[in-house]
Design a protein around this nucleic acid. Structure first.
Lengths: 241, 241
DNA sequence: GCACAAAATTGACGATCATCAACGACGATC
DNA sequence: GATCGTCGTTGATGATCGTCAATTTTGTGC
């Protein structure tokens, strides 16, 4: 699971198996050298901020290991977790391209590794590699359609169904098959963040979790979730009749 | 209000005052000529579909007049109005750039004029004008941040506050100042669509409207809304204490 | 003008939610 | 080890919402 490049500081993203799935995988030789010299790897502890909402952009970041949460805050202390970023995902590119301050914060959810590429390097790379800009465009479109899916679910699903959907999404990235055939998830987020992703309060999430427990479709113990049958859970969303 | 180019069929977007605010405003001479030959203007009646979710992409569209709703549907008949597109906005570019079928439907909300640019023309324009791709990227990023705003509001605001926010947004595009200083809006959408944008049911929207009426902050008569004081309405969202 | 379909409103009821409060568990810090 | 703050859970209560149903209004086509 851990990329080999974690241990080799000077290695180029292009040779990193994470990098091969990233936006930077098919740069030409000089561009790759430029990227190797202009990027900095850094490890983040759980809860550390990669960048902060409202601060000026200082280049783009690429997740290399772990999970990074993209969060939006307001003046009243409300916090909503908008996206989760995984190895290979480029983050912070929007404020770079629009030349504005960060509209969201990026926070390591658990120990993570993130590369940073400074403004001049990324600008030079974009100028010499038109395909890179196109890849940012595709990424942006993908995120936009993901956001539209989210808005659609927020408007049409009940809170319980939204939580079930979220669990099913988290299974893909964080799930592991148990010996008895059940799926287990180590949740990367707190109950409060879970609540913000569903669009409700944390007390309500607690109660919905309680109902999922009594219904026997999922068992929660701290941040560990066990799902006896993923199919049974998925059936909740499909078969509403 | 009506652009002069509405009456001149053969005119280039570059000379249209709508076009000057669109993604196509600073093309060079040959590109402009290519655009003029490859685009088709068409008028749409209220409720007519510009493109349909699930169908293959056949180029991009540019709104020239009226209002176009971007809608997502599911198998169970649920419908959510995700965005409103106005003159100057390019729509349908996402499925073109990703080479996929349309993920949303576009519907004229009232009489509208929309230009269509076929696939080969837009591909040629993109190849010869790198700035055009960059503009699509900026548009996509803008829509993404708009979607994030929406997700944040869906998660943090009450239904009443969401409706108030929606009214305040609609004032900008559809409002007109009354003689007595009040603002009037001709809503471009039905109550059902209003409900989908707020993320609730149309019966609930009816009741919230009733409460806004009794509170005297807005008066509804069919699709016409009168707001005595926009500031008083805006104060509802800011001052929650 | 009439008929029909769709939209919008209103009522009633049970389900769900937000809020406030209290409490225990946990981790960080000194 | 003691303290503090955060997180998570649970209870109680009033408010809001979803659903079903009945009704009125609106709009459209003939």
């Amino acid at each position: 699971m851990t990329p080999t490049c974690f241990k080799r500081e000077g290695q180029a993203c292009i040779a990193c198996h994470v990098g091969r799935r990233s936006d930077w995988h098919d740069l030409d030789q000089p561009a790759s050298a430029l990227l190797a010299s202009g990027r900095r790897r850094r490890e983040y502890g759980s809860g550390e901020l990669v960048f902060t909402q409202g601060e000026p952009n200082d280049g783009v970041h690429c997740v290399s290991g772990g999970t990074v949460g993209i969060r939006r805050l307001d003046e009243k202390g409300n916090s909503v977790l908008l996206e989760l970023a995984y190895p290979g995902d480029t983050i912070g590119y929007r404020s770079f391209l629009t030349g504005s301050e960060h509209k969201t914060s990026a926070e390591a959810l658990g120990p993570s590794v993130v590369c940073h590429i400074d403004r001049v390097t990324i600008a030079a790379l974009l100028g010499g590699n038109p395909a890179l800009g196109l890849r940012f465009l595709k990424r942006s479109i993908g995120e936009l359609e993901h956001a539209h899916d989210m808005i659609f679910r927020q408007a049409t699903l009940s809170n319980r169904h939204k939580l079930v959907h979220l669990l099913l999404v988290l299974v893909v990235r964080h799930g592991r098959l148990n010996s008895n055939g059940a799926q287990s998830i180590d949740l990367p987020v707190s109950r409060r963040d879970l609540a913000s992703m569903v669009g409700t309060r944390h007390e309500t999430i607690s109660r919905i979790i309680g109902r999922l427990e009594t219904d026997g479709v999922a068992h929660f113990s701290g941040r560990q979730v066990t799902i006896p049958s993923v199919d049974a859970l998925a059936a909740e969303i499909d078969c509403l009749i």
